[in-house]
């Protein structure tokens, strides 16, 4: 199993106790957010510990002070102005000891997806978000961040690419299985992944349904086993999406 990085004994805040909503008021350049944390989430924590909420995306983040465990406060301004893009924000809630062992995180929750204004209350889980970027001469790459999860990055230089990637099974079949392969290797080989992060659990759930392999209980032990696991999973993924058959049909229709 993967190594758990929790040598300070920090507690996990239950995601269901935290509700974050992002709004973009008309005419405003940047969105704002609201957050509410159910008191039950804070049970047993030091009353003087400070609560911070940190929206983040890829390598950018901001920080907002929400008071203490016993005296929550809403910041005067929650403008999300210093994040690299407006889509796919995630949030981290931290409860921090600032009186005893200063700086130690007593409890946290990462990878929290905000609810949109039109959200009916069900968090949408984007397993593998796509980010459009200037990638120089590269068409795509996978950004593998152990804290935020994998992101498929694609070039903004080809204006038709978003539509093609959505509709063309040939292009999908060329990109997605290879990108999926990179994520699988990351999951079975990266030792600094925190098992409790939502993105890790979401990926493991997906892999369990796809392959029947429960990575929470069994992890390929050596490179040979990993290679076999990854190969089987990519084959199952490609089979699930019928890339080759759909590409053939698509070409026939286009022709």
């Amino acid at each position: 199993m993967k190594k758990r990085i929790n040598f300070t004994g920090r507690r996990k805040l239950a995601a269901e106790h935290i509700e974050i909503r992002v709004q973009k008021p008309e005419g405003q350049k940047y969105p704002t957010f609201t957050a509410s944390i159910a008191p039950a989430a804070m049970d047993g924590l030091d009353k003087n510990a400070r609560v911070y909420i940190e929206p983040y995306v890829v390598s950018s983040s901001m920080r907002f002070d929400f008071g203490t465990v016993s005296q929550p406060q809403i910041p005067a301004e929650t403008l999300l102005s210093e994040l690299d893009r407006e889509e796919s924000f995630l949030f981290r809630v931290k409860v921090v000891d600032e009186s005893g062992h200063v700086g130690r995180i007593l409890a946290d929750a990462s990878g929290i997806r905000p609810k949109d204004a039109d959200d009916d209350g069900i968090n949408r889980k984007s397993l593998f978000p796509v980010q459009w970027l200037d990638l120089g001469e590269r068409i795509w790459r996978v950004d593998l961040n152990p804290h935020t999860g994998p992101v498929l990055q694609a070039t903004t230089k080809v204006p038709e690419l978003p539509t093609k990637l959505k509709n063309d099974p040939l292009l999908q079949g060329v990109i997605y299985p290879q990108a999926f392969r990179e994520v699988l290797w990351f999951l079975v080989r990266e030792e600094e992944i925190d098992d409790d992060l939502p993105w890790v659990q979401n990926w493991r759930d997906f892999i369990l349904k796809l392959t029947g392999v429960n990575l929470d209980e069994e992890t390929p032990e050596d490179d040979e086993e990993r290679e076999q696991f990854v190969e089987d999973a990519v084959k199952a993924f490609s089979g699930q999406h019928n890339f080759a058959s759909r590409a053939k049909q698509f070409e026939e229709v286009v022709a």
Binding site: V102, I105, H147
Partner: peptide, 13 residues
């Protein structure tokens, strides 16, 4: 980047 999981460095001196 490693310690970020367990420590909030902005809270530290």
């Amino acid at each position: 980047q490693q310690i970020d999981l367990t420590y909030d460095l902005q809270a530290c001196t």
